[in-house]
C-alpha cells in the first residue's frame, strides 16, 4: 500500500500560497533595507552622484574605480588604507581571539567572584563607540593621563594617539572594546563541553594543557569558528574608533573611514563624492567577501575534521 501523500499544512488550492504571502512582509523588508541599498550602492559606484538633491547624476562607467585604484598619489593613499585595513584585521583578529579565549578560560574556573569578572570583561562591549573613544582619549592623554604616568614609571614617553604609533593604539582600543564579546562566545562553548569528557581524560592521566588541547579545544570548534569569522568581518568594517580617536589623519586611515570621508565631505576638498565612495565601499565589500569566504572554507574544513 502506497503511503498517502503528506497533507499540506495550509490545505490545497489558493491556500498553498499562504506561506509565501506570510513570508512576503519579511522578504519585502529584507529587500528594502538589505538588498536594495546594496544593489543601489553598486549602481551608484558607476556614477558621479553627490547625494545632494538637485545635482544631476551622470554615468561615469569605471572612472571611480580607475581613480580609486590608479589615479595619482591618491590611489597610493587608498592602497595604503587598504593595506592598513588588512594589518588592522590581522592584529585585531589574532589578539582579540587570544585575549577573549584567555578571559573565557579564567572566568570559566570555579573561583569566587567569577560573575563579577565576567561582567567587568563584558562591560566595554555595551558602551558606544563615542564613550569608548572618549574614555581612551582621557586614558591616553599625554602629559598627565594614566597611561602617561605608567609609561613614566619606566622612563618612557609617547604621544599616544597624537604620535606615529596612533594606529596601533586604535588596535588596542578595538581589542579592549570587543574582547568581551569574543569571551562570551567562548564561554558559552566551554559550558557545553560534557563534564564526563574531562573525567575520562583525567582517568587517562591528562592534566592542564593536555586537557585543554585534547578536550576543550576540539569541543570549542563551533565557538572558535564563529569568533574567527566575526573578528575578521568586524575588524574589516571597523572605522568609527578611528573617527573618534584620531580623526581623518594621514597615516591612520582605514578603508571604511575613506568611504565615510569621501561620501560626506570630510576630506580636504570637502566635496560630496558619493559615487566615488560607493566604488570604495564595493572594493571594501569584495575584500570582506573574499576574506570571509576564505575564512569560512578554513573553519568549515576544521569543523568537519573535529566534529565529524
Amino acid at each position: 500500500m502506497a503511503a498517502s501523500p503528506q497533507k499540506n499544512l495550509f490545505g490545497g488550492g489558493r491556500q498553498r500560497l499562504y506561506p509565501w504571502l506570510l513570508l512576503l512582509p519579511g522578504l519585502g523588508f529584507y529587500f528594502l533595507i538589505g538588498v536594495g541599498p546594496s544593489l543601489a550602492t553598486a549602481i551608484y559606484s558607476f556614477t558621479d552622484a553627490t547625494g545632494i538633491r538637485g545635482l544631476p547624476i551622470s554615468w561615469v562607467g569605471w572612472d571611480n574605480y580607475d581613480e580609486f585604484i590608479f589615479a595619482g598619489a591618491r590611489s597610493r593613499d587608498n592602497l595604503d588604507a587598504l593595506q592598513r585595513t588588512l594589518i588592522f584585521m590581522v592584529l585585531v583578529t589574532t589578539i582579540q581571539f587570544a585575549v577573549g579565549l584567555v578571559m573565557a578560560l579564567l572566568v570559566n574556573q570555579k573561583l569566587r567572584g567569577r560573575l563579577v569578572f565576567r561582567t567587568l570583561f563584558f562591560v566595554p562591549v555595551i558602551l558606544g563607540v563615542a564613550v569608548q573613544g572618549l574614555m581612551w582619549k582621557l586614558f591616553l592623554r599625554p602629559g598627565g593621563g594614566p597611561m602617561h604616568e605608567i609609561f613614566g614609571l619606566f622612563g618612557l614617553e609617547s604621544q599616544f594617539l597624537g604620535g606615529p604609533n596612533a594606529f596601533y593604539w586604535v588596535v588596542v582600543v578595538q581589542v579592549w572594546a570587543n574582547a568581551g564579546f569574543t569571551m562570551v562566545i567562548f564561554l558559552a562553548g566551554m559550558q557545553t563541553v560534557p563534564a564526563d569528557l574531562y573525567e575520562a581524560a583525567s582517568v587517562d592521566g591528562a592534566v592542564g594543557w593536555q586537557l585543554f588541547k585534547n578536550v576543550t579545544w576540539p569541543q570549542l570548534t563551533p565557538a572558535v569558528n564563529t569568533n574567527f569569522l566575526l573578528n575578521i568581518v568586524g575588524s574589516l568594517q571597523a572605522w568609527m574608533l578611528f573617527l573618534v580617536l584620531t580623526g581623518y589623519r594621514n597615516g591612520t586611515n582605514v578603508l571604511g573611514y575613506v568611504v565615510y570621508a569621501e561620501a560626506f565631505g570630510q576630506t580636504a576638498a570637502s566635496s560630496f563624492r558619493q559615487g566615488y565612495a560607493a566604488a570604495a565601499s564595493i572594493v571594501l565589500f569584495l575584500l570582506v567577501l573574499a576574506l570571509g569566504m576564505a575564512a569560512n572554507a578554513v573553519v568549515g574544513r576544521r569543523e568537519r575534521k573535529y566534529m565529524s
Partner: peptide, 12 residues
C-alpha cells in the same frame, strides 16, 4: 587652496 584630483595626502 583646492587640491588637484589625484593629489596625495601630503600635497597640502
Amino acid at each position: 587652496f583646492v587640491g588637484p584630483k589625484g593629489a596625495g595626502q601630503w600635497a597640502n
